[in-house]
Structure formats: C-alpha cells, structure tokens
Design a protein around this nucleic acid. Structure first.
Lengths: 249, 249
DNA sequence: ATCTTGTTCTGGTAAGACCAGTACGATGAC
DNA sequence: GTCATCGTACTGGTCTTACCAGAACAAGAT
C-alpha cells in the first residue's frame, strides 16, 4: 500500500505535507473544495482515519472548514482560529504574553510608519474618534481598553497592509485579555490617565504630520512607559493614597 | 455507548472539550502524561480514531506532544506551534510579496532592537560568521542569498523571542524565492556588492555596540536601499556597461 | 415545467486488528 | 544480595471494514 511515491515520513505527515504544498503553491485557494477524503486516501495510500486526522488538524488551524456531508473547503484564515491556542497556551505559560507583546510592538511600529505615508483623511477621522473615546472612557477598564485598542487597530488599518493587519489581529485576540488587566492599573496611577490620553494624542499628531520617525519613536515610548507602569504596579507602587488596596497582583 | 455524560456535541468536540477543561483547570500540567488513548476511549465513549483526531488537533496547536509508544504529554506551548498557521495564512495573500516584505521588516526591526539588549557572545560570533560568508559568496545568487538570509535570521534569533522567530521563519518560506531573484540584481550593479557587505557590517557593529536606535535605523536604511536597487532594476538602469543583458525581469 | 424519488456521494463514527517499540517486573545468573 | 536478561503488558501508529445520515443530482412521474 506504499505505491504512490514518497514514504519515509509518517502517513499523517505525508498527508499534511501534501495539503500544505497544494495550499502554498496556490493549487488550493480559499473557497475551493478539496478532494473527498476517500479520494485523498486513494491518492496518498493512507487510511481514512489518518486523512481525517490531517484534515482536523488543518481545521484546528482555521485553514480549512469541514462541512458535514458537503466536503472540505479552504477557508480564508482569520485570527479567530487561534483562540483555542491562546486560551490553552496562556493557561500553561503566562509569560507568553510578554513575548507576543514584543511581536505586537514590531507590527505596530512598522504600521505607524506606513500609516504616515498612506493614511487618508478618513483614517485621520477614525483615529481622532478613537482618541476622543479614549478620553471619554478613561475611567472604565472595559470600555477604556476597547477604545485604546480601537486606536491601535486604526493605526494598523491605516497602514493598508493586509499582512500587518492579519498579524495584528492575531495578536489582538491574546492581548485583549492582558490589555484589560493592564487598564485596571489606571485606577492606581493618576498619572496614567494623562499618559493614556497625551501619548495617543502625540502619536496621532505625528501621523497627521506624516512624520514616520517621530511617530515610531513616540509609539515606542508609549509602549515602554506602559511597561514601566506595569513594573511599578507589580512591585506595589502607586501614586495614589490607596495604592495598597490592590497590591496583591 | 452514550453513557458517560454530556452528548449533544460531536464526539470530537466532546473529547476536545474534556481535554481543554483538564488543561484549563490545571488538572493537566506541562510535562504530565495524560491517559492513554484507549483509556480516553473508554472514559468518553468514543472510538479511538476520534480520540486521535482530538489529540492530533492539540498536537497541531503545540499544546501536546504525542510520543510514539510512550504516551501523550502536555507541552509547554510557545508560539512556534503556529508556524503552519501563519505560513499558510500568509500564502493566501502571497500575491502581495511586497506586503509580506513589509511585515518582515517590521519583525526584523524589532528583533534587531531586542538583539542589541539580549545578544550573547555566541550570537555575535554567529553574526560575524554570516557576515564573512556574505563577503565570500557575493558573486553567487544562490549561496549569496542564503548567506544573506542567515545573517538576518541570526539577528532574529539573537532577539530571543520565540514569537518573532516564528513569524520571521514563516515569512522566510514565502520570501525565499523573491529574495533569490533580488540577488540576481547583484550582477547588474557593481555598487550593490559593497552595499551588501557594508550595510550588514554596519548593522552588526550597531548590535555589538548595543545601540538599538542606530541598529534599527541602519537596518531600515538597508532595506530601503535594497528596494531602491530593485526599483532601478525594474526601469532598466544599472551601473555596469552590460546592464541591458538582464533587462527582461 | 415541476415535483418526486432514488442512487450516489459526502463526512462522522465505530470496532477490531496488527505492528513495533517501551517500560517494568519477574526470572535467571553471578 | 545484586545485577543482567527476558517477557509480557501496554503504548502509539496504522489499516480495514462497515454503517449512518444528510446533500446533491439526475432520472422518472406528474
């Protein structure tokens, strides 16, 4: 039953490699239905359970959608597929957040530069609306972190780069959680309120003035200061009198 | 065969839900071996193929490691498990090579900053070796582009960020081809040789001196100049006499 | 032309079997 | 008693066969 070509790898690996190749070389495009399971069985010389394992694996990654009694179709992958990963991974290893955060910074710093070149008036308006909302929701962790995130998302979208947007969205899923927690610190540091408002404003100004260097530096500083707040929170500092109340983090 | 509790969901979902729960509530911790497949079969009242589908799915997410003839153990997950996802996700917009390239720049510029902080002596050595190889292979497109890429990869690895490394590698897969084509231009521009050598050298120096700002600026300029060469190549320019010979790109 | 009815194809699942190594306890030699 | 050897039970990896239920589609009946 090893007639059809390359063995050496396990059956599962073989099926996966086959599908991966088709997906990479464009033979299989989003929306297209790939061959039936039994057909794959015939072509690759493996059993159906193995084929199903591979398809499920791809399904788990959001690459493919298995429609009961219809067939398996290639999906346009989106970040929501990573929800399971982030949920489980985070439960096992909380410090993953810092690592992913670094990737997010990478994406946004590049995005803000591109945004300086490519942002339209509509983008400016969207950014400004987000900016206003940040000021309005400064005292609420939930709506506040949402507003904050909208602003950052708007930057990435203004960069007009599908890839950057996709990557950012992927990170967003995970970071939404930590982002909200971070915002809870706002209650502990009065100075953080102006930090949140002013910093974003400065980034916005740099974008409007189409100054990539200043935009990036400002954004980078913004992240660094946020980190610094978090550090101080961990060691129990605060610039309000009731700082001790939430010390046990 | 539906004795053990909650049905309603598909068998696969049930197994996944069961395992997810164990993983989230801490019953299953990294390093621990979870029950044998056949045991899961008994406990959940599903067939073994289904159990295996679920385990493979978790394996695909990097949550679990399936060791042949040993058992399935919980892994400490890191973002590298998502390589397949990102590689395939990026492939579906691969018509936008320039766009992916921008994302790569984002990753590397962040990485080079982190590398300035975190690079070890061993990293310096690796970078230097790559640097030397770039000089040695300057006239060959294949080995030359490989050396070039090794240098850039070394930067990312020196950043010691699994997520950045994973993203970079995903893009590398897609960019390998265009990267090589780009290198063919070296035959057309004598000045590009010194560009390749000197630029990388300058980036290396900045890393060794642990100067993030200079490292990033230098790297950014490096990419920009590469782009400029490509632009000039497209319009048929060149600084060698036989520039016209390879005009049809 | 439309409705009905199959047949056929799809994925979803179960059950049973075999292989090839591993782990570990029992057995043997020393 | 200690240590090496050997079985055996158990593990994951795979294949095979089989059945189900719903979708698709084409052919026939109305």
């Amino acid at each position: 039953m090893e007639s059809s070509g390359a063995d050496s790898a396990s059956g599962f690996e073989r099926v996966l490699a086959y599908l991966r190749e088709r997906l990479l070389d464009g033979t299989l495009k989003p929306g297209e239905r790939l061959m039936a399971e039994r057909e794959l069985v015939r072509q690759l010389g493996v059993s159906r359970p193995i084929v199903r394992e591979a398809l499920r694996a791809l399904h788990m990654l959001g690459i493919v959608e298995i429609r009961d009694r219809i067939g398996t179709v290639v999906k346009r992958p989106d970040a929501s597929a990573l929800k399971d990963f982030f949920t489980l991974a985070l439960a096992q290893q909380a410090d993953l957040i810092d690592d992913v955060m670094e990737a997010r910074i990478a994406i946004e710093c590049q995005a803000v530069r591109l945004a300086c070149e490519r942002a339209t008036i509509a983008d400016f308006e969207k950014l400004q609306r987000a900016l206003i909302r940040i000021g309005e929701t400064i005292d609420d962790a939930d709506t506040g972190s949402a507003a904050d995130f909208d602003f950052h998302r708007a930057i990435v979208l203004a960069a007009r780069s599908p890839t950057l947007a996709m990557l950012h969205e992927s990170m967003a899923t995970l970071l939404a959680i930590s982002h909200r927690n971070r915002r809870l610190l706002v209650q502990r540091f009065d100075s953080m309120k102006s930090y949140l408002v002013d910093d974003h404003k400065r980034v916005f100004d740099a974008i409007v003035k189409r100054d990539p260097d200043r935009a990036e530096v400002t954004l980078r500083r913004h992240f660094a200061i946020g980190d610094e707040y978090r550090r101080r929170a961990v060691i129990g500092e605060g610039d309000r009198a009731d700082a001790r109340t939430a010390q046990s983090e």
